[in-house]
Design a protein around this nucleic acid. Structure first.
Lengths: 141, 141
DNA sequence: GTTTAAGTGAGATCATTTCTCATTTAGAAT
DNA sequence: ATTCTAAATGAGAAATGATCTCACTTAAAC
């Protein structure tokens, strides 16, 4: 999800303690890729630090979110999921079957610059999603 | 949220029964505006149809979602919230304090046309969100 | 090594969502 | 209008996800 060591460094820089539970959670986030739910983070991190409590997972995910290092994303789940706080995510989401297609170029960079100036807002990432009906669902009788 | 009668018509057209519970839920969605959670829809709809069960609210929201008439959106909540299934939503979201700023023009129309063709996907709406740190949070000591 | 504010675990509590199944009903058929 | 039936519903149980509390622990500054 992130370049290794990135999250730990950012935490320390922001004045937070680098504890064993946090190290385990960070290691999971950095190694296991995108779209992890809170529960998945908990399960995976307990393989590293078995005493880890659910509460600490929620607290750490919230902390990392507030620092802009990760952010929640809406998938077809009930559970909250997280992705990297940097860069863009671009999806086509089928309203009927939930299928997700990804694409790369989105062309919002210029807009980002304009908005950053207009709102005096420091932009770190973005999400662009289109919703509709996919080919399969549309051609199904 | 929708032009009046739009949802009821679409439901019938898709072959679903137009029951009293569904009418109440639809009336709420059409009148009460955006960003309602399931719980809020339940509470408001019960003012119209007091026997209404939570389960029916969930079932109806899921049905309307599958038809592309509404869609879930991620806000700073635990609860699932819904917006119109048509048109675009454009937000700047502060990772630190959760503040949301809206903007209008997003310029993704041309991209939408290209993607629709490339993926053979019928696009009905989109969401463009930028994440970062707002002016207030950045200048706060 | 001491100190102390920050961080944590365990489990209770709360909120949201899903499930089950007996009962009801919209709308088609007559 | 009446009958019929698959679809829809209500009520509450169960599951899942998130938050809170508080006594205990610990990172890191000194």
């Amino acid at each position: 999800m992130e370049p290794s060591g990135h999250l730990a460094e950012a935490l320390k820089r922001a004045g937070y303690k680098l504890t064993a539970p946090r190290k385990a959670i960070i290691q999971v986030l950095e190694q296991e890729g995108e779209h992890l739910s809170s529960g998945e983070v908990w399960a995976l991190s307990r393989q590293i630090y078995p005493l880890l409590s659910r509460a600490t997972v929620y607290r750490t995910l919230e902390l990392l979110t507030n620092l802009g290092l990760i952010r929640p994303i809406l998938l077809n789940d009930t559970a909250q999921r997280y992705v990297s706080g940097e860069g863009g995510h671009h999806h086509l989401v089928c309203s009927a079957c939930g299928a997700v297609f990804e694409f790369e170029r989105c062309g919002v960079d210029q807009l980002a610059v304009e908005l950053a100036e207009r709102f005096d807002f420091q932009i770190r990432s973005h999400l662009l999603e289109f919703y509709g009906i996919c080919h399969t669902c549309r051609t199904r009788v």
